[in-house]
Design a protein around this nucleic acid. Structure first.
Length: 569
RNA sequence: GCGGCAUUAGCUCAAUCGGAUAGAGUACCUGACUUCGAAUCAGUUGGUUGCAGGUUCGAGUCCUGCAUGCCGCGCCA
């Protein structure tokens, strides 16, 4: 917990013995408006036990309380006890801290020794990577960085959809209508064409579906032809996927897709049988979950081949045994909620205590022009097109605004991709996103480029200050940063660490995204109203130090979201 | 049919375990570049928080019912 909040809680606890210290900590709030102070303690809940009006309690407390000198005063307003920072001291403390800790600002050791497995992205082999797949990838990537910042050891796993009946379909299609050269040239597109063709043909000829299931069964049994085709399809697809991940700057520790567990499922099925959890129904094998209000969880089809849930259960057990994770996070859209609830329950029924450490983090779906994005229909928006479109648009803007920029292409990639990623990370996970080209290509207001621009602007001031090379004392006098506008920037920096912890607690990167927007807004206001380079020497020093602290904080924040922070753009 | 999620300004979204006057961006209109980067800043306009009840000091937030939308419900993943 935030050290200042802790101080407030301690100060209050000294006078409110009837409430536990930990409860007091959780009651401390940040007031909605700056004039109400920096931290507040609401007294409503004390009214009953203390048999006094909340206003009186607040008044009484504010008169009695003693607090450390980082605070300047505490006074009640209505039923709240409001604490005000000593602005000069806080400015000096925060800036010193940011400049000393640099990219480690806001980090902590709370997660030391704890392992977090994060299962994200997980696209299907042989299908195009569209804007709908972006969310899992960027949310997972941001959580990876946020947890790491807080001391956890993260293991990023790309649980590729590289196994299952769909491969039987592609194999059947390839054997009937495929062209090897086309696949080498444009793997994802050609494989998709085959997949689409399969479904068209299967409508008139349902026998194809049976053939597809047979081929998948052959894969599971180790048939050489089936496996060599599968291997080829998946290698070609991964090559394409890696280009996109490179553009996004996303990395994984392991590409262990579903196929990785092919030889690990049998012992799990045996264990399930030993624990008397399996029932047979119409030839298939399943775990009955009626007692828990859920439909059964199928683990084996009537032909003996396995299903998605079988592989997920096996993967979870493998990960627990291999990494001994503290938590294992799964990033998928909410249409899979029941699936996860079912197999989490199976893990529990198997007697594994750690079922509580499995966390499905569902997110909303992406639609385009009111329709869901479907690979088989014509409604697909390819991520590749979106990213490159954004990059091209940024190139145009650079030509217009900053034609002499060096590294134009590199910068356009950082900003264009940053815009798309930032946009995806700025809404609550659970909300559906309506994709629009207009929003994806907007770079003003609450956008990634706005924050990047603010950062570049700060860099520019610092560059000029150093070019001017005026030899002044580095002593920072916080007195020059106590006006409302400067102070608001300090306040945002002070809350940076809290927003990271909050984002982690709720597994919600948008909390951090919104916070760095607030910081950038506060800084732009400061920048506009307060000249830095031409200020009086002492004031100049103080303002430059603030600019440096903001630059550092923004760049750290963006990096935790997986977004680059170019020094010029 | 059963279950889950969502609904806040014209649009896209915030709102700290229930807390202070529901806030931003965008769009529209107005103003600020010979001055540290105008991808910026300032201002104006914009609300019966889907509807009806309930719980209490206090409800966008919790409960009940209803409406609308999305998602899911045995051999896909």
């Amino acid at each position: 917990m935030n050290q200042y909040k802790e101080m407030v809680a301690v100060a209050i606890a000294a006078h409110v013995p009837e409430i536990d210290m930990r409860d007091i900590s959780t009651m401390i709030e940040t007031p909605p408006e700056a004039h109400m102070g920096d931290y507040a303690f609401p007294c409503f809940r004390l009214a009953k036990t203390m048999r006094k009006s909340p206003q009186l309690i607040a008044e009484d407390l504010s008169n009695k309380i003693t607090y450390p000198d980082i605070f300047e005063k505490c006074m009640n307003e209505g039923a709240y006890v409001n604490f005000f920072f000593n602005r000069k001291k806080l400015a000096e403390e925060m800036i010193d801290q940011v400049l000393a800790e640099k990219e480690f600002f806001g980090s902590s050791k709370e997660g030391n020794g704890k392992i977090i497995c994060i299962d994200y992205s997980a696209p299907n082999i042989a299908k195009p990577f569209h804007v709908g797949h972006l969310r899992s990838t960027v949310i997972g990537n941001a959580l990876y960085k946020i947890y790491s910042h807080l001391g956890y050891t993260c293991i990023g796993i790309n649980h590729l959809g590289d196994w299952g009946t769909q491969f039987g379909k592609v194999i059947v299609a390839y054997r009937n209508w495929g062209d090897a050269k086309a696949i080498e040239k444009e793997p994802i597109q050609s494989l998709l064409d085959l997949y689409v063709k399969f479904h068209e043909e299967a409508e008139d000829n349902p026998v194809l579906e049976d053939e597809a299931r047979e081929w998948f069964t052959k894969m599971e049994k180790g048939d050489e032809e089936a496996l060599s085709l599968w291997k080829w399809f998946s290698t070609e697809t991964i090559k394409e996927l890696e280009k996109i991940y490179a553009l996004l700057g996303v990395k994984f520790d392991y590409y262990t897709g579903e196929s990785f567990y092919n030889d690990k499922m049998e012992p799990v099925l045996r264990d399930l049988a030993d624990k008397n959890l399996l029932t047979e129904s119409q030839g298939a094998t399943m775990i009955d979950l009626e007692a828990y209000g859920m439909p059964p969880c199928l683990v084996q089809k009537s032909d003996g081949s396995t299903l998605y849930a079988t592989r997920d259960i096996t993967a979870a057990i493998y990960r627990k045994n291999t990494y001994d994770f503290f938590k294992c996070l799964y990033l998928t859209d909410y249409s899979q909620k029941l699936h996860f609830a079912q197999w989490f329950k199976v893990i529990e029924l198997m007697g594994f205590e750690w079922h509580l450490d499995l966390l499905h983090l569902p997110f909303g779906r992406v639609t385009h022009e009111g329709r869901r994005i479907q690979t088989r229909k014509g409604t697909v928006v390819l991520l590749d097109e979106v990213l490159n479109g954004a990059i091209d648009r940024v190139k145009e803007i650079i030509e217009e605004k900053n034609p002499n920029l060096e590294n134009k292409l590199e910068t356009a990639v950082a900003v264009g991709v940053g815009a798309v990623v930032f946009n995806d990370l700025s809404n609550n996970r659970i909300k559906d996103i309506s994709f629009s080209w207009e929003t994806a290509f907007s770079f003003e207001g609450e956008t990634g480029p706005y924050v990047q621009y603010t950062h570049a602007r700060a860099c520019s001031v610092l560059r000029k200050a150093s070019e001017a090379a005026i030899g002044q004392s580095n002593h920072l006098d916080g007195q020059f940063l106590t006006d409302d506008i400067s102070y608001e920037v300090i306040r945002q920096i002070e809350q940076f660490g809290d927003s990271i912890v909050d984002a982690k607690n709720k597994n919600e990167p948008s909390i951090l995204t919104r916070h760095i927007i607030d910081l950038a807004q506060a800084f732009n206001r400061f920048y506009h109203d307060h000249p830095v380079l031409n200020a009086e020497p002492k004031q100049r020093n103080a303002r430059l130090a603030l600019v440096a602290a903001v630059k550092e904080t923004l760049s750290t924040g963006l990096s935790l979201l997986g977004i680059q922070a170019p020094e010029k753009m």
